[in-house]
Structure formats: C-alpha cells, structure tokens
Amino acid sequence: MHTVWKGSISFGLVNIPIKLHTATENKDIKLRQLHKECHTPISYQKICPGCEKEVTNEEIVKAYEYAKNKFVILDDEDLERLKKENEDKAVEIVDFVKLEEIDPIYFEKSYFIAPDNGGAKAYSLLRKALTESGKIGIAKIIIRSKEQLAVVRVYKETLLMETIHFPDEVRNVQDVPNVPSEQLVEQRELDTALMLVDQLTTTYDPEKYTDDYRTALMELIEEKKTGKETVTATEKEPAPASNVTDLMSALQASLDKTKTKKPTTRKKKAVTAKKEPAEKATSARKNA
C-alpha cells in the first residue's frame, strides 16, 4: 500500500512514528474524449490568451487574485519554506471528543495509519486508549501543502485518520435556496411515512450496496469490445527528415527560376536582331 505521508503523531508525552496510507479509492470509470472524425484522443494544452501561445510548466507561476485581475505572485521558495516549517512539526492530538459530536458533513478523506519503525508499542497503546474510552482524537496535519484538521479513531483494529473540514469551509445552511418553512403535516400522512420507515429499517451492511451504474457501464463496454465495436486512433505520421526535398517546393523553385531566365533570353535575341541589318548594309556597300 502506497505511503502518502510519513511523520509522527503524539498525545501527551507519547510519540508514535507513523505512515499514512489512503483508505479509499475512486472507482469511477474514466472515459477518454476522441475526435469523432479520426478517433484521435483529444489533448489539452495550456494556452495564454494574452500572448496567444502555448506555455510550459516552467513559464507558469502561482498567484493569489485579491481583486479583479489583481494578483500577488507567490514564489516556489516562499511556499516551500512555509510547507517545510509546518511539516517539521509532529501531528499532535490536542483534544479527545465523542465521534457522535461531529456532524458527517465535516468528514472529507480517510487514511489508514500504520506504525513506522519502533512505533508498534505506542501505536497499540493509543489504539487501546481510544477503544477503552470510546473517544476519538482531534489533531492537525499538513498534507499536500494544506493544513488539515483531522480525527484519529479506531477502525477494525487499525488506527484511522480522517481529515475534516474547518468550520469556515462548510457553507452556511441559511444560503440554501427554496428551503420550505415548517408546515402543518396531517397525522395520517405522518403515520404512513413512519410505517414506511419502519418497514425499511435494517442493520447497516456496507456489502449490500453496489454501484449499479458502474457495473452496467462495464458490461456495456465488454459487450461492445466482444462484438468488435471498437475503433483505433489515427497515429500521426512522423515529420519528414530535414534532408528530404519537398516536391512542391522544388517544382515551385524551378518554375520561379524559369520565369527569371526568360526575360534575359528575349533581350539577347532583340539585340541580335538589331545588329543584323547593320551587318547586311556593310556587306552591300563592299559589294558595290
């Protein structure tokens, strides 16, 4: 399992060297975009609309837009320094709370916590303390240049870290449009709804729920692949070698060269034509 973060976590005077591993994965089926005419995959370029040209990663800088078209440029050195200052700090559990006190809207991403070298005993101690107390730990951590608030809890004998949103990252519920105010509900309607809830109530089993759309999409893809309903992208032909003469260029150059020579030839003929009468007159006088 790939390690995404390596450091230590502490509570009180106990320090645990740890590694984080992503606990979940995105199973979405990624579809490519092709040119309908030749089935070549579409590529996306970074274009500067001001210069009207493609730019490379080396030509791009990070900036914060504090007003319309007004930016503060942030150097990579500045960002790296801030990142280093915070990453050097150990992840410290600052509070212990009950899991049910945190609304699910705050939860973001899950990571398995594994003990690093020499951390097995302290790891087991924290796991046991959380299990016996029924509490979870609240901590802070820097992941991918972003400070995260996180909870540490036990999940199937493994310590699990879940990043959670800061309060100002959760939008105000008052801004949600068209939410109806409390209205009178007839008792008969409420009784029917409660009966339906009771009939559908069960024990949660995660294995019961599957992604039906993803399954159907993969079946459709396999069906088309088996039925040979496939296309092959058109490969771009390599550019001709620099020492190979372009036929059209050669023909055009030859044509231009011919046009340049023709006026010179006519001029010489014209001069010769003028000299001929003079030579004939001289010959006639001699004969006379």
Results as ranks from 00 to 15, higher is better:
E229S: 08
E235L: 10
K257T: 13
T232E: 08
G227P: 05
Q252I: 15
S249W: 05
E235Q: 14
V244S: 06
E229V: 06
A241G: 03
G227S: 08
K228A: 14
G227H: 08
Q252V: 15
M248G: 04
L255G: 13
K257P: 03
D256V: 04
E235N: 14
L255T: 11
K236Q: 15
E237P: 11
P238H: 03
L251W: 02
D256T: 12
V231L: 13
E235K: 15
L247E: 09
A250E: 11
Q252N: 15
K257Q: 14
L247N: 08
D246N: 14
A239L: 08
S249C: 00
A239V: 09
A250W: 05
T232N: 13
T234L: 14
S254R: 04
L251K: 02
P240F: 06
P240Y: 07
Q252D: 11
T245M: 11
S249E: 15
P238K: 14
A241Q: 02
A233N: 01
L247V: 13
P238M: 04
T230D: 04
A233H: 01
P238L: 08
S249P: 00
A250L: 10
T230H: 00
K228I: 05
S254N: 09
A241R: 01
S254D: 07
D256S: 12
A233V: 01
G227K: 11
N243I: 01
P240V: 06
A233P: 03
A241Y: 00
A253W: 02
K228N: 15
P240I: 05
A253S: 15
E229T: 03
N243P: 00
K228F: 14
D246I: 03
A233T: 05
E237N: 10
P240S: 11
Q252A: 13
S254L: 13
S242G: 00
L247G: 02
S242Y: 01
L251S: 04
M248L: 15
T234K: 13
N243G: 00
D256K: 15
T234C: 13
A233S: 14
S254Y: 09
E237G: 03
A233F: 01
A233E: 11
E229F: 10
V231W: 11
E229C: 03
D246C: 02
A241N: 03
A233M: 13
T230N: 08
D256C: 04
E229G: 05
A241H: 03
T245V: 14
L251C: 07
T245K: 09
K228M: 13
A241W: 01
T232F: 05
L247D: 10
V231G: 01
S249K: 12
N243F: 04
E235H: 14
D256M: 08
P240Q: 09
K236G: 12
A233L: 04
L255S: 12
T232P: 00
K257C: 02
L251V: 15
A239M: 10
T230E: 11
V231T: 14
A250V: 01
A239G: 02
M248Y: 08
A250C: 01
E237S: 13
K236N: 10
A241V: 01
P238N: 09
A253Y: 05
V231R: 06
S242D: 04
K257E: 13
S254P: 00
S249I: 07
E229D: 13
D246V: 02
A241M: 02
E229N: 09
D246S: 04
L247F: 06
M248Q: 08
K228P: 09
L247Q: 07
